[in-house]
């Protein structure tokens, strides 16, 4: 469903992705882990055509989007929802208007139906009585939840998450993880999640992919990865654990 083939991307002289190959299973949760600054966000932005590769192909449902024009790309993007690292809510709009935005743009629902869907999605992410608040009045965790509600407003087939739990406290982190798993179960969408939190990756993923120096160096189920005898994978996990605990507390 999503195939990345030999993706290479450099910024100036810095090679961020280096002939990266990755196949993402449909209707599953794939977590891509890697170090901070390792190119995770850049990789995710390739999947939705925000960044174009220097070379390589990005196949979404059989369509190569790496060279698509804006109009066709926008058609493909209707299959997607994306949660940004810092939520990227429109700060000139209320929470309700943010979640309603994709509905108003791409459906012909009546105002009442839109409001109903907005409330439904906000309930789903565990938010109540925030519809009329501005994003600036929310905490970081709440903003992420609103971002998630907006991302799934149109029930997309593919949802991309850029570090959904970074910067949240442990309880919040757990509840967002649970939310992701529950939402995926319910919607049967393809979830691609980026993280440097290896514990959470092992809990929520059907598949874990490891990004290191611009390549995917290992892919497997959490059990496969955890019990891997590959010394490189072991060290990678250990490094991330060390880094993770440093960032977490």
């Amino acid at each position: 469903m999503i195939n990345l083939i030999k993706i290479t991307k450099s910024f100036n002289t810095q090679k961020v992705l280096d002939e990266l190959d990755l196949n993402i299973d449909p209707e599953k949760i794939t977590v891509i882990i890697g170090q901070s600054g390792g190119g995770k966000s850049v990789l995710l932005k390739h999947i939705i055509g925000l960044i174009r590769p220097d070379s390589g192909q990005i196949i979404i449902d059989g369509i190569d989007i790496s060279n698509l024009n804006d109009k066709k790309l926008n058609e493909v993007r209707k299959k997607f929802g994306m949660l940004f690292q810092d939520a990227a809510l429109f700060d000139s709009m209320t929470v309700g208007e943010n979640v309603a935005f994709p509905l108003n743009e791409h459906t012909r629902l009546s105002k009442k139906e839109v409001n109903k869907t907005v409330n439904e999605k906000l309930n789903l992410v565990g938010l109540k009585n925030v519809t009329h608040k501005m994003p600036s009045e929310l905490s970081g965790g709440m903003r992420k939840r609103v971002g998630l509600a907006r991302a799934i407003a149109l029930d997309p087939k593919i949802v991309l998450f850029d570090e959904p739990t970074t910067g949240l406290d442990p309880i919040m982190r757990e509840s967002v993880d649970e939310l992701i798993v529950a939402t995926q179960k319910r919607t049967k969408a393809t979830f691609v999640i980026i993280s440097h939190d290896i514990e959470s990756a092992f809990t929520i993923a059907h598949k874990v992919a490891m990004l290191y120096q611009g390549k995917i160096v290992a892919v497997g189920t959490p059990d496969e990865i955890r019990s891997s005898n590959n010394s490189f994978v072991k060290r990678f996990i250990k490094d991330l654990r060390g880094q993770g605990s440093g960032i977490r507390d």
Binding site: D70, R77, F80, F84, D86, D91, F101
Partner: peptide, 14 residues
């Protein structure tokens, strides 16, 4: 800089 323009793009709004 807060990626709101990217967000517009991902929602197929030019």
């Amino acid at each position: 800089v807060t990626e709101q323009i990217d967000a517009l793009n991902t929602m197929s709004v030019n």
